[in-house]
């Protein structure tokens, strides 16, 4: 038998930040290609500009603050790609640049970079743009594919990610490899579907590509969600309830973005109040015996 002697940590599993981030980018490639196919070259330009701005901003910020440059770990590419998928296809190209820079500077690096974020960086960028240039962030004319296949090919798509919920199939691979947690998507989907059925809301108006993107890629961001298992169920359920409440007054697209951000604010509290306390059980056991 061969003995391997090495210093800790003894990691057997072949998991790293790079692997998780690049798998998420690859899982998003089908929907990106689909968006380029549906919306034409303008979608491609938006994606390229967002990703390039994200990578450049990260490199410049880390160079300025004398840190190791970590653009190869894929997080900057992922943030740029996620933000690009939340844009309408006909925006001027300076909008992605501003949004991505806000996301990278104020949501990611101001809080300490990868793993320290409190608010989801792509969504902070979207929220900033929606409040600053709301007229540019809405899209009036949408391509239609006919109403026969509403769930497969989104009709009336208004965002790059809206092209088809089926193009998010890569998320299943991420769930299978446990790169994203299954508890948040499960409680999220169950709450949204249940309340849509109870309130008699048309399911095709809620279950758009953006919602699927939000459930599997935005709400499951590792550092902005609770670490406890019960906390993750609460997080997903809270997102679902907040989306339905917002949808009664506004559009579901904005509801998806803001409800995930609002639950990010509650993450610290959820973590604090659902933290397991083994000593309490031990003390009660001591008192009994």
């Amino acid at each position: 038998m061969k003995l391997i002697i090495s210093a800790p940590p003894h990691i057997k599993e072949d998991v790293s930040i790079e692997k998780i981030m690049w798998s998420m980018v690859i899982a998003l490639l089908p929907v990106t290609l689909m968006a380029v196919y549906v919306f034409g070259l303008s979608a491609l330009y938006i994606v390229l500009v967002s990703v390039l701005t994200a990578v450049l901003t990260e490199a410049i910020l880390q160079k300025m603050s004398d840190k190791r440059i970590t653009i190869q770990d894929g997080n900057a590419v992922l943030i740029g790609l996620l933000l690009a998928l939340l844009f309408p296809p006909n925006i001027p190209l300076w909008i992605p640049i501003v949004g991505v820079m806000i996301a990278m500077v104020f949501a990611k690096h101001a809080f300490g970079g990868l793993g320290h974020t409190i608010f989801n960086p792509p969504l902070v960028g979207v929220a900033f743009l929606m409040i600053s240039w709301p007229s540019l962030m809405t899209f009036a004319s949408a391509p239609r594919f006919g109403a026969s296949l509403p769930y497969i090919l989104e009709y009336g798509a208004t965002r790059l990610a809206d092209v088809s919920p089926l193009a998010m199939i890569g998320a299943l691979y991420l769930l299978y490899k446990r790169y994203i947690d299954w508890r948040i998507p499960l409680s999220f989907i169950v709450i949204v579907a249940l309340s849509a059925l109870l309130l008699r809301i048309d399911l095709s108006s809620i279950f758009t590509g953006v919602l699927i993107l939000g459930i599997f890629f935005l709400a499951t961001d590792h550092s902005t969600t609770p670490v406890t298992k019960i906390g993750r169920f609460i997080f997903g359920a809270g997102c679902g309830i907040l989306i339905i409440i917002y949808g009664q007054f506004g559009t579901y697209f904005e509801g998806i973005c803001y409800s995930i951000l609002l639950m990010n604010c509650f993450t610290a509290l959820i973590d604090k109040y659902t933290a397991p306390n083994p000593s309490r059980r031990y003390v009660s056991w001591l008192k009994k015996s």
Partner: peptide, 22 residues
């Protein structure tokens, strides 16, 4: 500085989410 940043982002989220509710 950090507290002001947190306040600004919280305010962005609150104004965005609850601004629509009437």
């Amino acid at each position: 500085t950090g507290a002001f940043l947190v306040a600004a982002l919280l305010s962005l989220i609150f104004v965005n989410y609850f601004g629509v509710i009437q």
